[in-house]
Amino acid sequence: MLYRITVRNADGEKLEIVVEMSEDEVRALAEELRKAGYEVRVEPIPEGEEP
């Protein structure tokens, strides 16, 4: 499935990426980023919607 991941650092800089991963993989990635001090938001992209 496609997911949009938005990551912000302490300075407020934002990075937005689209990935194709399983829900478990995305959850693990988000958890690791949060542990590293980043603010993370994950949104699933519905099938048929443009990323």
Results as ranks from 00 to 15, higher is better:
residue 1 M to C: 02
residue 1 M to F: 09
residue 1 M to I: 12
residue 1 M to T: 11
residue 2 L to H: 10
residue 2 L to W: 09
residue 2 L to F: 10
residue 3 Y to M: 02
residue 3 Y to K: 01
residue 3 Y to D: 00
residue 3 Y to A: 01
residue 3 Y to V: 03
residue 3 Y to P: 00
residue 4 R to G: 01
residue 4 R to W: 04
residue 4 R to S: 04
residue 4 R to P: 00
residue 5 I to T: 00
residue 5 I to L: 08
residue 5 I to C: 01
residue 5 I to R: 00
residue 5 I to Y: 00
residue 6 T to V: 11
residue 6 T to C: 01
residue 6 T to W: 10
residue 6 T to D: 03
residue 7 V to H: 04
residue 7 V to N: 00
residue 7 V to E: 00
residue 7 V to I: 14
residue 8 R to Q: 12
residue 8 R to V: 12
residue 8 R to H: 07
residue 8 R to W: 11
residue 8 R to P: 01
residue 9 N to T: 04
residue 9 N to Q: 09
residue 10 A to V: 04
residue 10 A to Q: 09
residue 10 A to M: 11
residue 10 A to L: 14
residue 11 D to T: 14
residue 11 D to Q: 14
residue 11 D to F: 13
residue 11 D to G: 10
residue 11 D to K: 08
residue 11 D to Y: 07
residue 12 G to I: 07
residue 12 G to D: 03
residue 12 G to N: 05
residue 13 E to R: 11
residue 13 E to A: 15
residue 13 E to M: 13
residue 13 E to Q: 15
residue 14 K to L: 12
residue 14 K to C: 01
residue 14 K to Q: 11
residue 14 K to A: 06
residue 15 L to T: 12
residue 16 E to R: 10
residue 16 E to Q: 06
residue 16 E to I: 08
residue 17 I to H: 09
residue 17 I to N: 03
residue 17 I to W: 12
residue 17 I to G: 02
residue 18 V to F: 10
residue 18 V to M: 10
residue 18 V to G: 01
residue 18 V to S: 12
residue 18 V to E: 11
residue 19 V to C: 02
residue 19 V to I: 04
residue 19 V to D: 01
residue 19 V to W: 03
residue 20 E to I: 06
residue 20 E to G: 05
residue 20 E to M: 06
residue 21 M to D: 01
residue 21 M to S: 13
residue 22 S to H: 08
residue 23 E to C: 04
residue 23 E to G: 10
residue 23 E to I: 07
residue 24 D to V: 10
residue 24 D to W: 08
residue 24 D to C: 09
residue 25 E to L: 06
residue 26 V to K: 00
residue 26 V to R: 01
residue 27 R to Q: 11
residue 27 R to P: 01
residue 27 R to Y: 07
residue 28 A to S: 10
residue 28 A to M: 04
residue 29 L to I: 03
residue 29 L to E: 01
residue 29 L to Y: 15
residue 30 A to R: 04
residue 31 E to P: 00
residue 31 E to M: 09
residue 31 E to V: 09
residue 31 E to I: 05
residue 31 E to C: 02
residue 32 E to D: 08
residue 32 E to Y: 03
residue 32 E to H: 03
residue 33 L to Y: 15
residue 33 L to H: 02
residue 33 L to C: 01
residue 33 L to P: 00
residue 34 R to Y: 05
residue 34 R to F: 07
residue 34 R to M: 08
residue 35 K to R: 07
residue 36 A to S: 04
residue 36 A to D: 07
residue 36 A to R: 15
residue 36 A to C: 08
residue 36 A to K: 14
residue 36 A to L: 04
residue 36 A to F: 07
residue 37 G to V: 01
residue 37 G to K: 02
residue 38 Y to R: 04
residue 38 Y to C: 01
residue 38 Y to S: 10
residue 38 Y to H: 13
residue 38 Y to F: 14
residue 39 E to K: 03
residue 39 E to A: 07
residue 40 V to K: 00
residue 40 V to P: 02
residue 41 R to S: 13
residue 41 R to N: 05
residue 41 R to T: 12
residue 41 R to P: 00
residue 42 V to C: 02
residue 42 V to S: 02
residue 43 E to W: 05
residue 43 E to V: 14
residue 44 P to R: 09
residue 44 P to V: 12
residue 44 P to Q: 12
residue 44 P to H: 08
residue 45 I to S: 12
residue 46 P to F: 14
residue 46 P to G: 08
residue 46 P to K: 14
residue 46 P to Y: 14
residue 47 E to A: 12
residue 48 G to H: 12
residue 48 G to M: 15
residue 48 G to P: 15
residue 49 E to N: 09
residue 50 E to V: 08
residue 50 E to F: 07
residue 50 E to K: 09
residue 51 P to W: 01
residue 51 P to K: 00
residue 51 P to Q: 07
